[in-house]
Amino acid sequence: MSTEARRAPFPPRPTDDPAPAGTEAQAEDEPSLFAPRRPLERPRETRPPVPEARITTPPPPPPASARFPDAPPPRTPAATPTETTTRLRPVPAGAEPAAQVPPPPAWSPAPAPDPALSWNAPWPVGAFGQPEPYEEPVRGLGSPLARLRSRTGVAAVCVVLGLGLIGGALAGSWLTGEDGDRTADSGFAAAGSLWHNVPVDQLFPPTVQGTGAGPGGADRSWTRIAVAPDTGCAGAFDPLLARALAPVGCARLLRATYTDATRTHVTTVGLLFTKADPAAMAGLAARFRNERLDRRTDLLPLPYAAKGTPAAGFGAKQRASWTVSVLTDAPIVAFAVSGWADGRAVIAPEPAADGVRSGATSAPAQAGLGNEAQGLADRIQRKLRQTVSPATEKPS
């Protein structure tokens, strides 16, 4: 059986009445029960038409007068030529019109920066790097030759003034007789006459203070116990020392004996006034220094042993340490010799220069006898120079 026969098993019923007009068409439009269904059509949605996009420009901002009623109207820049580069030096007035900075636009919230405040702006006249008014060159001295002539003239004036001052000083020194050689000669001669012009207490003070003169920097104090009468030099030195001092002669010999605060040590100090001139004294000092005559144990001065004093037993065998100094600024030979006050003998005397050294182990050094001789001799010489200085001064 065909498909159509299965779909319509019953044949359509014939009708004798004709269908009215339009009925056929309506029957065709009506769906059949056995016909497939058509999908339902949804009604179309109606959307409003999209308007065409247009590019519009924003309206211009209101003028400054509208935003700020009190603000002055903007100035219209003059049509003047402007520069695109920064000037390195200022333009003088009148050379060309200065470029005016256009005002900031109306829409800018802040004014444009001032170019004069920029680091690239030229320095104003009168700033550092520019010559000050007082540094301007003087007319007529601008050329090198003129400046050389000016400097030469100034140097010549300075030389003339210097020569005049030197000449005046030399003339005054020659008229007054206060030149160096004459002053030295007068001091040398004045020192040679101290033995009969100055009291003994001024040459040998009754008490001498020796701050730091003892071993290890200890203080010392000496008291004078005897003064020898002024005599010649006979019997005052060992024979070899007397022979060494003979070239300068002997005008007068002054001696005094001192003891320390404990009366344990005794020291004789002497001043030999010679008859020599400055050259002879300088030669004697050089010989003592070169031949080391002041360190020989056979060239010692003798002590002055005064009876009834702690130095009564102070003889040649009791000499423990000594020093001899030849002065060159005065005709004087100063010396000192020390020993024990109990009269003990000393086998090997020692120079004071060796006894005052640190670490010396000899008996005189351990007892401080080198310090006694050196310290007392130094202070007597210092007192002698203080006495000579006022004697050589001339009244004004």
Score class of each variant (00 low, 15 high):
residue 168 G to Q: 09
residue 179 D to E: 10
residue 186 S to E: 02
residue 162 G to Y: 15
residue 185 D to T: 09
residue 186 S to P: 01
residue 181 D to T: 00
residue 167 G to D: 12
residue 170 L to Y: 03
residue 178 E to G: 07
residue 167 G to M: 08
residue 180 G to M: 14
residue 181 D to C: 01
residue 165 L to N: 08
residue 206 P to C: 11
residue 195 W to N: 01
residue 206 P to F: 04
residue 176 T to R: 12
residue 171 A to S: 13
residue 178 E to Q: 10
residue 199 P to Q: 03
residue 183 T to I: 10
residue 184 A to F: 09
residue 168 G to H: 06
residue 163 L to Q: 09
residue 164 G to L: 15
residue 181 D to M: 13
residue 166 I to K: 01
residue 203 L to Q: 02
residue 193 S to R: 12
residue 173 S to L: 14
residue 206 P to E: 10
residue 175 L to K: 09
residue 201 D to E: 08
residue 177 G to W: 15
residue 164 G to I: 15
residue 176 T to F: 02
residue 172 G to D: 14
residue 199 P to F: 00
residue 208 V to L: 06
residue 169 A to Y: 04
residue 189 A to E: 07
residue 190 A to T: 01
residue 172 G to A: 05
residue 171 A to M: 09
residue 190 A to N: 03
residue 207 T to I: 02
residue 190 A to I: 02
residue 196 H to A: 07
residue 187 G to C: 05
residue 189 A to S: 13
residue 195 W to Y: 14
residue 182 R to A: 15
residue 178 E to K: 07
residue 197 N to G: 01
residue 187 G to R: 08
residue 187 G to W: 10
residue 167 G to C: 09
residue 163 L to A: 15
residue 164 G to Q: 12
residue 174 W to N: 12
residue 192 G to D: 09
residue 181 D to P: 00
residue 174 W to C: 03
residue 205 P to M: 06
residue 208 V to E: 03
